[in-house]
Design a binder for these strands. Structure first.
Lengths: 221, 221
DNA sequence: ACCCCGTTTTGAACACGTTCAAGAAAGTGC
DNA sequence: GCACTTTCTTGAACGTGTTCAAAACGGGGT
């Protein structure tokens, strides 16, 4: 019965995520997870090669939830600024239960060897899912975004999202409302900045920026 | 004799930094440092409360060196793009011996509790030193930067520098030449972008960006 | 029933960062 | 020189993430 095995795996993952939320990353020891799940330490390792992989589990789950919630929030919004806000706010929403744990997450995620590294191999799927959210935010907006920007913009917005997430991690204000303000301020500004691409003198700078971004992307070698 | 104590401290720090360079962060265990330095583990901890504090030692040293080298590189360069290049390139220069160790450093640095966190309390001195480098790059440039930008620009450039450093950490190209290309491409673009601030339609967007940046800075509460 | 073999589970063991009670050395006042 | 204090040094011990040889389980084949 493959179901039994899967059941243990899920149990361990669920307990781990629960403990992450309740007592934070550091205090959630592998021993604590095992005990709370009623299995041995070694057994947890049979399903997750490292504590980091449990973080990956969390990452995927949060990402999935973001996709759902963002799609919903995008339904009745047309303008780019509003759509950006929707995606960014929902992004923060789904992460909120893990806020205290955010810095540990980022410290884990930032290692190139980590399965959770957002730029890395192992999280291609999660990153693509996240990118898709931003692509839909861009493509569904009206008035529409300048053609020449449309391809690269989602990736840049995703990068900005990483920045917002970083800001959020450090945000000690009550309910992280500073981050909310940042989003509310930055989203319209980005939309407005992009609309400047039409101005002749500015257009060339935009082209060069895009050229640089392309040349600098992680491509083969 | 206070010198004896200081000598031990230096010895431990020197050995630690040497090992960081030679065998990387993870493989440099506290036991290895102690053994190589000919002291006990506990003794190393008498001078450095944690492995992180040894990283801080490295951070300070690299920062100091950057200040010296950057000042020198700025001597004969007038235009902003060139000055930016100088500061960024020298920044990468001084970090280069530690490249393989970069991701561990960042993972350490990014925790709010870390003494090396660039946004944190404990590294105010180092950050201010770094900010001063960028301020001098901005202030010494001719043609000069628009007045309204002059105050906030150094901080924004420093932030961009953090981004470049992050890119560099992930840069697996030979000698990290992709990062060099990024700097060479981005510096003139930033300078050119800033010159757009004079265009009427653009000016307002700049003002709003600056306003947002100010409102969002880590100020009291 | 029995054995076989792949999957799952166990718990002891390892190396690590870190702590700490205890002792050695160095300094200070007399 | 001697007691006393402060500074420095030691190494064993703790809790952590992780590994691994061995055991238990499960389900086909005979």
């Amino acid at each position: 019965m493959a179901a039994k095995s899967e059941q243990t795996r899920q149990l361990v993952a669920d307990v781990a995520l629960k403990l992450f939320r309740e007592i934070g990353f550091e205090k959630t020891t592998m021993r604590a997870i095992a005990q709370e799940a009623g299995v041995s330490v070694g057994n947890a390792y049979y399903y997750f090669a490292s504590k980091d992989e449990l973080v990956q589990e969390l990452y995927i789950q949060v990402q999935d939830e973001h996709a759902v919630v963002a799609a919903q929030a995008l339904e009745n919004v047309q303008d780019l600024a509003g759509r950006l806000k929707a995606v960014l706010h929902t992004g923060i929403d789904v992460m909120t239960p893990y806020h205290q744990f955010g810095s540990d997450f980022i410290a884990t995620a930032i290692r190139p060897t980590s399965p959770v590294n957002p730029f890395g191999e192992a999280s291609t799927a999660a990153r693509d899912a996240s990118l898709a959210i931003f692509r839909s935010a861009v493509e569904g907006s009206s008035p529409s975004v300048a053609k020449k920007l449309r391809d690269d913009l989602p990736e840049l917005l995703w990068l900005a999202y990483m920045g917002v997430a970083l800001y959020w991690v450090y945000d000690k204000s009550e309910g992280q409302r500073r981050t909310r303000r940042l989003i509310d301020g930055a989203a319209p500004l980005m939309a407005r900045g992009l609309s400047l691409a039409k101005i002749p003198g500015v257009s060339k700078v935009f082209d060069d920026v895009l050229g640089l971004v392309r040349s600098v992307k992680e491509d083969p070698k």
